[in-house]
Deep mutational scan, measured.
Amino acid sequence: MVIEDPKTNKLIEVEKLPDGTYKVTIYDKKTGEKKTITMSKKDLEKLLKAL
């Protein structure tokens, strides 16, 4: 799943891993910076609600 946040000009890509956690990659379209973090479903839901 890919989500675009027009306010921050970032793309957020979410991928479910076999162990039940989620790999979240955040791309900054302005700088080209890429950050990848792994989080639980509960933390991911908090992140998505904040957008």
Rank of each mutant, 00 (worst) to 15 (best):
M1E: 14
M1L: 08
M1Q: 13
M1P: 08
M1V: 15
V2S: 02
V2R: 00
V2N: 01
I3R: 00
I3Y: 05
I3E: 15
I3N: 06
I3W: 01
I3L: 02
E4Q: 02
E4N: 03
E4L: 03
E4S: 03
D5N: 00
D5V: 06
D5I: 04
D5C: 11
D5H: 01
D5K: 00
D5G: 00
P6L: 12
P6M: 12
P6A: 07
K7L: 14
K7Q: 12
K7G: 11
T8Y: 06
T8L: 04
T8V: 04
T8Q: 04
T8M: 03
T8K: 02
T8P: 01
T8S: 11
N9Y: 05
N9M: 11
N9K: 02
N9D: 12
N9Q: 07
K10Y: 15
K10R: 14
K10H: 07
L11R: 12
L11T: 11
L11P: 01
I12D: 01
I12C: 01
I12A: 03
I12S: 01
I12V: 05
I12K: 01
I12H: 03
I12L: 06
I12R: 01
E13H: 11
E13R: 11
E13G: 06
E13I: 15
E13L: 15
V14T: 03
V14M: 12
V14R: 01
V14H: 02
E15D: 13
E15N: 12
E15V: 08
E15I: 13
E15F: 15
E15L: 14
E15K: 08
K16V: 13
K16L: 10
K16T: 15
K16A: 13
K16S: 14
K16W: 11
K16H: 13
L17K: 05
L17Q: 09
L17T: 05
L17W: 08
L17Y: 10
P18S: 10
P18K: 07
D19H: 08
D19N: 10
D19T: 09
G20F: 09
G20D: 08
G20P: 00
T21Q: 04
T21R: 07
T21V: 07
Y22M: 03
Y22C: 02
Y22L: 02
Y22A: 03
K23V: 08
K23Q: 06
K23A: 05
K23N: 03
K23G: 04
K23R: 15
K23D: 02
V24P: 00
V24Q: 00
T25F: 14
T25S: 07
T25E: 02
T25K: 06
I26N: 03
I26P: 00
I26S: 10
I26H: 05
I26E: 08
I26A: 08
I26R: 03
I26K: 05
I26M: 06
I26L: 05
Y27W: 13
Y27S: 05
Y27H: 04
Y27V: 02
Y27T: 07
Y27I: 04
Y27R: 01
D28S: 04
D28T: 05
D28Q: 02
K29S: 05
K29G: 03
K29Q: 02
K29I: 11
K30P: 09
K30H: 09
K30G: 13
K30M: 11
T31A: 05
T31D: 07
T31F: 08
G32Q: 08
G32I: 03
G32D: 04
G32N: 09
G32H: 08
G32P: 05
G32F: 13
E33H: 10
E33W: 13
E33I: 07
E33Q: 06
E33L: 12
K34T: 12
K34P: 02
K34G: 10
K34Y: 13
K34Q: 10
K34M: 11
K34W: 14
K34L: 07
K34R: 09
K35A: 09
K35Q: 15
K35N: 14
K35E: 12
T36N: 06
T36W: 12
T36S: 13
I37H: 12
I37D: 04
I37P: 00
I37T: 14
I37M: 15
I37F: 15
I37R: 10
I37L: 14
T38F: 15
T38D: 04
T38W: 15
T38I: 06
T38Q: 06
T38G: 07
T38P: 09
M39L: 12
M39I: 04
M39G: 01
S40A: 06
S40Q: 06
S40G: 10
S40V: 07
S40Y: 14
K41S: 15
K41I: 14
K41H: 15
K41Q: 10
K42V: 12
K42M: 12
K42N: 11
K42Y: 15
K42H: 11
D43R: 11
D43K: 11
D43T: 05
D43M: 13
D43Y: 09
D43L: 06
D43Q: 11
L44A: 09
L44Y: 05
L44Q: 00
L44E: 00
L44S: 01
E45R: 08
E45P: 00
E45V: 12
K46N: 08
K46V: 14
L47E: 02
L47N: 00
L47R: 00
L47W: 13
L47V: 07
L48G: 00
L48D: 01
L48M: 05
L48E: 02
K49C: 11
K49S: 13
A50F: 14
A50W: 12
A50V: 08
A50K: 06
A50M: 11
L51T: 07
L51V: 07
L51P: 03
